[in-house]
């Protein structure tokens, strides 16, 4: 056998493996969708707003409901205490505008 036959066979086997893996989500879809539907129903019944990925602080457990000042929750200018603060970006503050005043005469 030629050398390339082995290599092509190996690459073919890997491609087949990848194809099987990519088919797996399709195969697992009914189960997954059933599970997610159940979970979604539970979320709706309980009114949950956030996944329980980081449970150590208010602003990492419920980032969507946390106060807007959460990165400085203990005193202004304090450093983030928890490593998860690295993963949970600070909330988007709405205020980016300027409040401008004009002298009376310029109006």
């Amino acid at each position: 056998m030629r050398r390339s036959s082995y290599v092509f066979a190996g690459l073919g086997a890997l491609t087949l493996l990848l194809a099987v893996e990519l088919y797996y989500p399709v195969f697992a879809r009914p189960h997954r969708d059933g599970r997610l539907l159940e979970e979604r129903r539970l979320v709706a019944r309980l009114g949950l707003t956030d996944p329980a990925l980081f449970t150590e602080a208010r602003y990492t457990r419920n980032p969507s409901l946390a106060d807007l000042n959460t990165p400085f929750q203990d005193h202004p200018g304090s450093f983030d205490h928890f490593p998860s603060g690295t993963f949970v970006p600070p909330p988007a503050t709405p205020g980016k505008g300027w409040l401008l005043f004009q002298p009376e005469a310029a109006k």
Partner: peptide, 28 residues
């Protein structure tokens, strides 16, 4: 998807005592 991403878990767990043991939904 088959082993539940054991290499990422320590990074994502942070300081939390509870980290959810959840099945990752297969999605590509």
């Amino acid at each position: 998807f088959f082993f539940g991403a054991p290499l990422f878990a320590p990074i994502l767990k942070g300081w939390a005592v509870i980290y959810p043991d959840f099945p990752l939904s297969p999605h590509v």
